[in-house]
Simulated assay, not measured.
Amino acid sequence: MGYENSDGEHPSVVLADVSRRPEINAQIIVFANEKGGVGKSTLAFHTTIALARAGHKVLAIDLDRRQGSFSRALDNRQATARSLGIELPSPKHFVLEHQSGAMMMQEIARVGRGCTKIVIDLPGHDSPIARRAIAMAHKLITPVNATFVDLDSIAHFNPATMQYSNMGRFTETVSQLQELKQGTDLPKTDWVLVKNRMRRNEKKQLDRFNLAIEQLPQKLGLRLASGLSERVSYRDLFMFGLTHADCIQLPEMDGVRVHKSADMDRLINELDFGDPPADLAPLPPVKARKPARTMARYRQSLRTHIGAKEHVTTSR
């Protein structure tokens, strides 16, 4: 099989670079797709917080230094915790500014000491650092919206028969790395294609999309999972760095009905991150310090954002 990459770097070079780095004693979870706008950062953020809330010690790495959506959501979370005077389960995190394999491993060792899960969010394009993260991944999570435009980087289909035709460019990269990883000490990657932002009212389009995508586990050796539905509340909560599960426990939020999202519970179960830590302790109640004027204003802003668009309710 011939290998070709945009910068001429052979996959064996990527694997050789990764293989000579020190072993990482943590599960590496990579969110990647060369198509932008498919919800990578949103899913990475919600997954990271779900793992932190479950008691895992998590390191979050944003490799999209230009957009920085993942790290900004985590910064927003820290700002919310400070503004409300509360503790929120959160990961350690950093943006990798100098993007080389050596620097990534150095920062993981420096910042991620003791972490059991490492969540990496990649930019929506191919790059040497992206290929190194994919090569390291125990789990590779690829979100895709229910359109054939978004599916194009994964696979191509015959428009007349809707049968699988050939790999997309992103899949070629993943497959080349997976093939060459066989026989090495690098971990086998569990590749999960996440059907994200499903709009139930677009039944005809969704049926055609499902007919196509359900061929991919057999053709490409991946598995399918359901992501987050298209809901305003996910986007509104971004600026506060919160998830639905956080909102349930926020103190002094009278008048706002908040229910945990079934979407996220289902996705975490389907992704199967293994058993929770043996020493897991229940999350303590979220208690705020005596609210100052700033805290009251912040709560009012959060209450307005949740209530003005839609209640944060469970999807069915």
Rank of each mutant, 00 (worst) to 15 (best):
T42E: 13
L43G: 02
A44L: 10
A44D: 05
A44H: 02
F45C: 12
F45Q: 11
F45P: 09
H46V: 03
H46C: 02
T47E: 09
T47H: 07
T47W: 02
T48F: 01
T48Q: 01
T48A: 02
I49R: 10
I49A: 03
I49D: 07
A50F: 02
A52W: 03
R53T: 02
A54K: 06
A54N: 03
A54V: 02
G55I: 01
G55F: 07
K57D: 04
K57A: 08
V58I: 01
V58T: 01
V58H: 01
A60C: 07
I61A: 04
I61M: 01
D62V: 05
L63P: 07
L63T: 10
L63A: 08
L63H: 05
L63V: 11
D64R: 00
R65T: 15
R65A: 13
R65I: 10
R66A: 15
R66Y: 12
R66G: 08
Q67K: 12
G68D: 11
S69N: 11
S69M: 07
S69C: 07
S69Q: 04
F70K: 03
F70Y: 12
F70R: 04
S71F: 09
S71H: 11
S71Y: 10
R72T: 15
R72P: 12
R72I: 14
A73Y: 13
A73H: 14
A73V: 15
L74Q: 10
D75P: 08
D75L: 14
N76C: 12
N76A: 15
N76K: 11
R77G: 09
R77C: 10
R77K: 12
R77S: 09
Q78H: 15
Q78F: 15
Q78M: 14
A79V: 15
A81K: 05
A81P: 05
A81E: 02
